[in-house]
């Protein structure tokens, strides 16, 4: 449901401005969302000055620079640092993406804001609670379902059918798309969101899967599927260049196909 104001205690306030590194000539200002449930109170925007000559080339490098040189209490998730695991998804300069593949050269001028993914509860600082997101992913049963007994070796698939999965299987579940979707902001408890629906389509069109009808049954709902209004934020922010909106449109096409 639309909520035009932040819940009580959620509006970020002005925070601490950390000192500039000494002797640095190439400084850049970052405003980072800070929140700690142990400390209580509202979240705050802390200001950091980063020596860009020492920080590396990616936003994740900036966060490491701050954590190692300025403020060790800054919390963020990261793992692979090469765009595979999706752990470091966050909102950078107003756009959801993953910090490890977002380069300085892609940033706009001026102060850069870094915040956790929108619309999800915050565990700490840049770490969102993605429990609901994962549960919605589980709802679409993202695995092969068959009634035919398992073959001796493997389920076979033609090269053409395998190609159908390109642009779908690459999703890393970073949640950038889902948490950028206004429809998901308003109806996140009912609407499955772009990431889960992209995966739903990935299994709907898998030539080996034998549960297509049941999968469509589980999706056919004014909220779970049809709350997508093709806003396209999902496709715009996906760090892997995928297009969940297109996948959702194709699910709708399958729905129409089976009643006409």
């Amino acid at each position: 449901m639309v909520q035009l104001t932040l819940p009580k205690g959620s509006a970020p306030k002005k925070g601490k401005t950390w000192p500039k590194p000494q002797g640095a000539t190439n400084l850049r200002q970052f405003r980072i969302y800070r929140y700690s449930p142990e400390e209580g109170g509202n979240p705050r925007w802390d200001t950091y000055w980063v020596d860009m000559d020492r920080a590396g080339t990616m936003i994740l490098d900036v966060l490491f620079y701050i954590k190692n040189n300025v403020d060790p209490t800054l919390a963020f998730r990261r793992s692979c640092r090469e765009g595979v695991c999706g752990s470091c998804a966050m909102n950078i300069a107003g756009q959801n993406t993953i910090a490890c593949t977002k380069g300085f050269d892609e940033l706009p001028g001026g102060v850069i804001t870094i915040a956790p993914l929108p619309s999800q509860p915050v565990v700490k600082d840049l770490i969102p609670d993605l429990t609901s997101f994962y549960a919605q992913h589980a709802y679409v049963q993202p695995y092969l379902k068959t009634v035919t007994p398992d073959p001796e070796k493997e389920w076979k698939q033609s090269e053409e059918d395998r190609e159908e999965l390109n642009g779908l299987y690459e999703c890393i579940l970073c949640a950038s798309c889902t948490t950028s979707c206004p429809s998901y902001w308003w109806n996140g408890d009912k609407y499955l969101g772009p990431a889960a629906l992209l995966q739903a389509y990935r299994w709907l069109i898998d030539s080996r899967d034998e549960a297509t009808g049941e999968r469509l049954d589980d999706l056919e709902d004014p909220f779970k599927l049809y709350r997508c209004h093709t806003i396209m934020n999902c496709a715009q922010v996906c760090p892997k260049g995928l297009n969940p909106a297109k996948a959702i449109a194709k699910i709708k096409h399958m729905m129409v196909e089976r009643v006409s």
Binding site: A135, E220, D221, P222, L225, Y226, M255, V259
Partner: peptide, 12 residues
Amino acid sequence: MARGLGSAKSGT
């Protein structure tokens, strides 16, 4: 929460 009231099996 994710399953909710289940699919309404309508909307198409």
